[in-house]
Amino acid sequence: MNYTLDFTPVIEGMPNLLTACLGTFVLAICGMLLATVIGIGGVVLRTSKIKALRWLVIGFVEIIRNTPFLVQIFFIYFALPLAGLRLDPTPTAIIALGINGGAYAIEIIRGGVQSISKGQVEAGLALGLHKAQVFRLIVLKPALRAIFPSLTSQFVLLTLTTSIASAISAYELTSVSQRIESDSFRSFEVYFTVTAFYLVISWLMMRLFAFFSARYFAYPVK
């Protein structure tokens, strides 16, 4: 009960922690980009005429959504070398984050695409545009706008999930803080501070999304 808080190791480790925040940002941003690509590609396959492809996407989404990220990242960590891909922990973590986020993105984007009226698609087709052009030029942006709030919270969640990448020693905030903790035994002080860092990071992410949304979706709707 005579414990006195001592933040000295935290202060000494501050430069390392701040650099590690950048690592977290890199993981988060790269993971989001990959998730977006997987999300859009998945929706295209999900609406394909080929039944097997549709079921492949459904299966992928359900497997990812119904298993923990920690198990997924372990699996991918061990599976990639077997598939001939020898990657460092950080790129491995990005792939895992992208795959995990992509599964959620597929469901969210699909909801957005369904929210676009059939008339929009028909108008595009009647103008002589191809299906892919209709999706890219007409459906995508209004659909993204419709789902942007849920996409934002999903991606903030993805940002927080980067902390689990510490389990395979990817370079990010949690793994660096674990190192400082095990050197100093000032566990509470370290994790308390790092928790505050995460709060700032997720807040920054939300501001970033709000900024992007204000820029990119600045067209009026009724």
Binding site: S117, G119, Q120, E122, A123, G124, A126, I138, K141, P142, R145, F217, Y219, V221
Partner: peptide, 11 residues
């Protein structure tokens, strides 16, 4: 083609 609901692209 011109549609009943106009179907202009909102973005």
């Amino acid at each position: 083609m011109v549609f009943q609901q106009f179907n202009l692209f909102p973005h």
